[in-house]
Simulated scan of single mutants.
Amino acid sequence: MKLNLKPYSIGYRTMKTALGVAIAIYIAQLLQLDYYVSAGILTILCIQPTKKKSIRAAFSRFIASLIGILYAFIFFEGIAYHPIVIGILIVLFIPLLVTLRFQDGFVSSSVILLHLYDAKNLDFDLLTNELILMMVGFGTALAVNMYMPSIEKKLANYRHEIENMYAAIFREIVVYLREGESAWSGKELMDARKLLEKAKALAYQDVENHITRHDNKYYHYFEMREQQLEIIERILPKITALPVIVDQTDLVADFLEDLSEHVHSGNTAYRYISKLDKVKENFAALPLPDHHEKFLAMAELYQVIHEMESYLEIKQAYKGFNTRKAEAPE
């Protein structure tokens, strides 16, 4: 049986976790804290993929630990330091954390609870020790997690890939309109859908890595492209369903060919809307169909023009990127 193993690699998050654990334990040792190795555990639990998640994790774990200390005082000091009491405490503790939406802090608070149980004497010095231990562990995690590598270049690459795919899709549509057939497999269409999902997820991660930022220009850009892709998916069946090639087919093909050569992130779609208005005028000026199949073809092509108008309006409404390119994009 062949195992499909992932390549061995050490990522930046792994490096930050290792560094954070070492720093937290070192500080805890310098402060001569009891259970100082637990500072490393608390740090591990708070290293998250993004800054905002790390802050939420630290807050959730700190509050959960404080609640755990209160429970320890009630159950251990009020009843007994006994394994059965720990079991009862946890049975009642977990539902409270879930109710308060601090369930992510259960593991870290359990570390503190077990310290208190092991000491069997909940006095001021122990409480101070645990509070400092939490501050060292959670604080170190937040400090090392403040560094996040820039993903701007990767987002820009996704943008260019998507634009190239859209251009390729339009070129294939042009081939079909002019020749009435195509060997295109539709690969770019499926790849564009997958890439948009990845790109949006990465753009959202970038939002999570900025404390005061609540949106991302790339995220809105990919959302806009996603809306456009839905329109492309709607016009493809109309193109492939054309019963015959009519004079109006060349008008639409010429327009789409021009559009395919200018797919970029600039926002001058109004120029192509003007060109599309000209296509409509030329469309209306051509002779009326002399049989039913030509009428159906003209009707489908007019629907394509209408959909492309919506496609361009979506781009025109988007204000995220500004470029100095002279040619108008879709």
Rank of each mutant, 00 (worst) to 15 (best):
K2W: 04
K2F: 02
L3T: 11
N4Q: 03
S9A: 14
M15L: 12
M15Q: 11
L19N: 11
Q29G: 15
D34V: 00
D34K: 11
V37W: 08
S38T: 11
G40I: 02
I41E: 04
I41Q: 02
L42R: 02
I44F: 08
P49R: 09
S54C: 13
I55T: 06
F59P: 00
F59M: 08
I63S: 10
I63T: 08
A64N: 03
G68C: 04
G68K: 01
L70C: 09
L70H: 06
Y71V: 03
I74T: 13
F76C: 04
F76G: 01
E77D: 10
I84M: 13
V85N: 10
I86H: 08
I86L: 15
G87V: 15
G87T: 15
I88D: 14
I88Q: 14
L89D: 12
I90Y: 14
I94W: 10
P95H: 15
R101N: 15
R101V: 12
R101W: 05
F102K: 13
D104R: 13
S110G: 15
S110W: 10
V111A: 13
V111K: 10
V111I: 15
H115D: 15
L116K: 05
Y117C: 11
F124W: 12
D125T: 14
D125S: 14
L127V: 12
L127Q: 06
T128N: 15
E130L: 12
I132A: 04
I132P: 01
V136Q: 07
F138A: 01
A143I: 09
M146N: 06
P149N: 03
S150A: 13
E152Q: 12
K153E: 11
K153N: 08
Y158P: 03
H160L: 10
N164V: 09
A167E: 10
A168F: 04
R171F: 04
R171S: 08
E172K: 10
Y176P: 04
L177R: 04
R178I: 04
E181Y: 07
A183G: 11
W184I: 06
S185L: 09
G186D: 09
L196A: 12
L196Q: 09
L196R: 13
A201Y: 04
A203C: 13
D206L: 05
E208T: 07
E208R: 02
E208W: 00
D215P: 00
Y218I: 02
H220P: 00
F222N: 01
E223G: 05
E223W: 01
E226R: 07
Q227V: 01
Q228A: 02
L229V: 01
R234D: 04
I235A: 00
I235H: 00
P237H: 07
K238M: 02
I239G: 00
I239F: 00
L242C: 03
L242E: 03
P243K: 01
P243I: 00
Q248I: 01
Q248W: 00
V252F: 00
F255P: 02
G266M: 04
T268Q: 10
L276K: 07
K278F: 11
K280A: 12
E281S: 14
N282S: 13
F283P: 09
A284C: 09
A285R: 11
L286P: 12
L288C: 11
P289I: 03
K294F: 07
L296I: 01
L296R: 00
L296T: 00
V304H: 02
V304D: 02
E307S: 08
E307H: 09
Y311P: 02
L312F: 11
E313N: 10
A317C: 10
A317P: 05
K319R: 12
F321S: 06
R324H: 09
K325G: 05
A328M: 03
E330P: 00
